[in-house]
Design a protein around this nucleic acid. Sequence first.
DNA 1: TGTTTTACGGAGCATTGTTCCGTAATGTTG
DNA 2: CAACATTACGGAACAATGCTCCGTAAAACA
Lengths: 199, 199
Amino acid sequence: MTEDMSEEARSTGAKQAGRPRRSEQTLLDAAAAVFLASGVDAPVREIATKAGVGVGTIYRHFPTRAELVVAVYRHQVEACADAGPRLLADSVTAEAALRSWVALFVEFLVTKHGLAGALHGDDAGSDALHTYFVERLVPVCGSLLEAALGAVDTAPAVDAYNVLKGIGNLCIGAATDARYEADVLVQLFVTGVLAPRIR
Amino acid sequence: MTEDMSEEARSTGAKQAGRPRRSEQTLLDAAAAVFLASGVDAPVREIATKAGVGVGTIYRHFPTRAELVVAVYRHQVEACADAGPRLLADSVTAEAALRSWVALFVEFLVTKHGLAGALHGDDAGSDALHTYFVERLVPVCGSLLEAALGAVDTAPAVDAYNVLKGIGNLCIGAATDARYEADVLVQLFVTGVLAPRIR
DNA sequence: TGTTTTACGGAGCATTGTTCCGTAATGTTG
DNA sequence: CAACATTACGGAACAATGCTCCGTAAAACA
């Protein structure tokens, strides 16, 4: 009970002693700017400098670089997730919906310098990033896939997790390699995934 | 002339003063062992220790970590490149040849911890790796692709470079993520690439 | 005004790739 | 055989980077 009260007190207006927290939004804005300029792999120190803040402050708000990245792109990931059902409702065919959604996802990944690369959580640090993307987008991708494959009697060749991660991987390096056409490759990949239906 | 003579002298038997070079093979063996145990991203120090050598020695033989990696896997890359024409000759269809070759390539990439990830030369350091793979394998992949797509009148959707790099990307993380089935995804991707022929 | 609480800043630690230089080993030469 | 010249060696040192820690400053409270 006492804990509940103190927590509520904190979240309502009753102020506690102590320095006021810097608005996280300030940090997020600075991070977004730096990511835009130098890519998602930009050093934390650079973000701290840009925000006029010590690195400690960043780490107190976002315990890991990956969580900072998640926070910066949360809006856009949510938007991407929300677009799934909408496209499914608005498109004439389920395949068209899937392809539009995939194109959206690819554009998002490619636009953000190095996001796709940071996405495969091999190193322990970027787990948060990987986990968030997967948890949020796999269900969406799954629905679209299911709809697009609905008419088939054979089991799908791969699950939504694999499709999503495959797409993510295909986007790696797209921003830095002019010859690499991630969007085309991804659409061909989708064609392959849907192929059993075509045959 | 004088330069030619001295160079020839060095490469034939006439010995120059100086400490004898450690056999590069020793270093390569140690590196291969460490890569097998800890992945291609293993610290250079670890390799040096394993080889009973200072880091300086490694860097004198292989100016960059990437070049060391290239040297370690050169044999297998060559084997993969050589397999291309052979498969094309031995398979009943060009598509079968392409698919077999791709499977070979995928197995190679997936077997070596993190090789696929190190392959996209975003950071300047791993350029050598990227370049070598591309130069050696793009032509091979191109021949197989051309053969498999030969019957089509429409232009191919993507070039061999994109296909090769796409496959490479699809293999990223396969070794560390049990749920991720790179081999299946790659074959679906190939299906997509060949799709114009199917329709 | 003094106390308490809380956030802040940035020095510091650990880990990397890579460079550099004094030193050791070995063939050549007198 | 004894200097010498040459070459490779080893590992300390540097720079970059993620992350931790602690003394300090600011704000609310009494």
